[in-house]
Amino acid sequence: MTPAAVPAGIVRVPEFNATCSYSHSKPDDPIVLPGLPGASHMHSFFGNKSTDAFSTTQSLLTNTPTSCTPANDLSAYWIPTLYEGDKAVEAESMIVYYGSRLIDPSATVPFPQGFRMIAGNAKTQTPTPAGSPGQYWCAGEGGEIGRSADGNWPRCAPKAHLTHQLVFPDCWDGKNLDSPDHKSHVATTYDGKCSGAYPVAIPNISFVVSYPTSGSTAGFRLASGMASSIHGDFFNAWDNAGLGHRVKDCITQKAKCNSAGTF
């Protein structure tokens, strides 16, 4: 596969994306609780519109409606549902960024279909005061103007919206599509390389989720509990060629692509 030529003026960062709108919500989790509909806390699903407790790689690949662009990304992405009081607040968008934090991104290879992983930890129930790692923040004019009464959530200026970025691991053991805790087959790099038990560089995924709310002193809660319990699930069902091209053109060459996978 010859990488596409990069025109002048393109931002030279390794990156492509899937831009998604909210699809549907269910108390289902095909990774953690497969075959057990209703067993999970509420999840907000993005991407493949068929995602539920029974989803498999095959079912995702054969059910083509998706809330993401491009249309050949049939992956399922999900996060715990956000609530303000008793009301669910669904995201206005989830942009899934695929990038690289490696010193040498050219080592990056695409994930196989059926590969899945979880980032974050639904069990973590700890305070997240301002400045906490992995915190929610305010994107837009005016930014953060205060905190919720419990200190765990930001309050945003009227034109700024609650936002969160969840970063996934960058390195894979190269053998297992999954692991019993859905995390042990991947690892995060701290030295810009993938080595040892996790030698395979995979695109570094981030979910950037934006909510149509500026928050209040009442704060929020997640279906999984406190803000600290934020987590995300990725179940890969990209078209192999589409994903392959993007990894070649945008990641290995360090060139920022749009959701069509072009410059």
Partner: peptide, 8 residues
């Protein structure tokens, strides 16, 4: 997987 966590 569900330790310390409230499930439905």
């Amino acid at each position: 997987p569900h330790e310390g966590h409230d499930m439905p």
